[in-house]
Design a protein around this nucleic acid. Sequence first.
DNA 1: CCCGCTATTGCAAGCGTGTGCAAATGCTGC
DNA 2: GCAGCATTTGCACACGCTTGCAATAGCGGG
Lengths: 337, 337
Amino acid sequence: MSAKVYVSAQEVAEKAGVSRSAVSRTFTPGASVSAETRRRVLEAADALGYHVNELARGLMRNESGIVCLIVSDVATPYRAALLRELTLQLQNAGKVAMLINTDRSDGSVDRALRQAISYRADASIILSGLPDKSIAQLCLRSGQRLVLINRDDDQPGPLRINLDDYEAAGRVVTAFVRAGCRRLAFANSEAGTPSLMARERGFVAGARALGMDVTVERYGWTGYEAGKVLAQRLLTRSERPDAVFCATDLLACGFMDTARHQFSMSIPNQLCVAGFDDIEQASWSSYDLTTFAQPVSTIAAKAVEWLSEAQPEIVSNQEQSLRLRAELVWRGSIRGG
Amino acid sequence: MSAKVYVSAQEVAEKAGVSRSAVSRTFTPGASVSAETRRRVLEAADALGYHVNELARGLMRNESGIVCLIVSDVATPYRAALLRELTLQLQNAGKVAMLINTDRSDGSVDRALRQAISYRADASIILSGLPDKSIAQLCLRSGQRLVLINRDDDQPGPLRINLDDYEAAGRVVTAFVRAGCRRLAFANSEAGTPSLMARERGFVAGARALGMDVTVERYGWTGYEAGKVLAQRLLTRSERPDAVFCATDLLACGFMDTARHQFSMSIPNQLCVAGFDDIEQASWSSYDLTTFAQPVSTIAAKAVEWLSEAQPEIVSNQEQSLRLRAELVWRGSIRGG
DNA sequence: CCCGCTATTGCAAGCGTGTGCAAATGCTGC
DNA sequence: GCAGCATTTGCACACGCTTGCAATAGCGGG
């Protein structure tokens, strides 16, 4: 291990002929330094290659500038897009993102939060899974902020950002009916997360309100391969559906591909399809998928804004919940847009 | 701002009735503590919710455990996959990933490295762009390790991981010729990064070795939309190519979609296509793309392994370069696999 | 020339941890 | 019981920084 030799404020001070505090103040916005001292310090710092040690600064200030992003399956298009938006906006707010990958077990989220505590992160943003209540409470008690995106949790303290999954799913029923579809199906994964289930319930309820039934099928995890299997299952039924709402765009891509290539069905003529997330692939001309857009940019903006706000103590007792609308993006996978 | 109140080793020591060093040693692997003291410390720590302050530990040890990942366009499938692999393997090695997003400007990479220095990162892994030589040297002098993935840079010190882009591109010529293709084209972006250009040169050279010419077209940045434009340009030529090698899978997807939907061409009957990266979408049945696989898992493994190695001083003067082979994944977009 | 005020500067304490060193403790064998 | 040894423990300093406090310098007005 080669020795790390970073230059310290002390050395800069000596070179500039000032005290260590002068150096410190030069790099602290709003501190009181004369223009002349500042100039000499900056000059010396530049010559020596000095950079403030954020570890030490964080130790003193009790504020590390670190925000933990806790997420599983980063490589998934929707997750990756949200991640991009979050890191970008965090950077603009002067924070830095620490990325912690979780698997789909509950324990891994807890481990991630423990790591966030260890690095004295200012906040943690959870995109996947749910932490144990006790560890979440520990974070909050320690003064760490918590943001839950598309997760459902009832304990007070964290900011919760959610979409109107239920209502959105209801709106797609109307679109299918207007296109003349009569046999509706819902393709879901077995993951069973609250947002996926809300879409399912919303779709079923919306159909029932119009006196229609929905064939629900669930399989595997929320990915392309699962979509293929779901198509396999739904399209070999005696009563083939003529419209299917997929809980996720990835599922929809898999679904459309087998519908076309294995069952030679034409979309949207014989089968209308809708998805959810509006991942980039949904706009590719092979899919041209009508879907609900995740407002990733707004989600990130709201989260970062909330983190940057000065927060009174009282606030932690009241409801912190944001409900965003998922807008329907019309494309060619449903007749008569 | 609500006050942060983390519990310190001091408090744990008092509760457990031992000295603070005992607490410290309990959480330091390999330190000398008796079983009994350890038990009492762990018990007290658990009751109080104590977590070692990694900021302070990093300050003392001169080793933060942080590794910076410097990357632009995180949401791109290949980047996201590499990112997943890296964060995962870093975690397994006991490190933690700090994600820094850059735009496509040079300066943003420099800013990222400055941040890496400020947080006293143990290492930085650069996936996009190239840092200024002076700032890279500053990192190395400070004892920070540098890894460049698919970037070309000649200065000694960093570990460079590259693929055999040139040779791989040559191999695809053979595949095209064996499929009976005669009019070859290469679709590239204008990004001009070394790996993209190496693929282009390798393809052209390989063709020329067999006495064939290549139509080269370049446009925009390396994404789906650029692929569409490239198809537009190449397929409206008087002499339509019957085989096209796209510098990237994303380009290939865009290319295939317009070839099919706008020019009604059949793949691979009228047009053979190959790509590079083997992103997930390449295996989707709408594309079924023959392509070269980025060995993301190996890349990440090699990088992490190198970081974890104890490194003698001398090593920083010799060549640190790894050349990995890109394996051809045969699918249906070239005739006669 | 001195007073009062303000803008700047230096001192030193403290943030939470690791670790060398010496003291203390426990254990073995006689 | 005691010497000899290995293991464990506590003390105190160091890491690089911020910041309250007091001292100093600068300066205009009387």
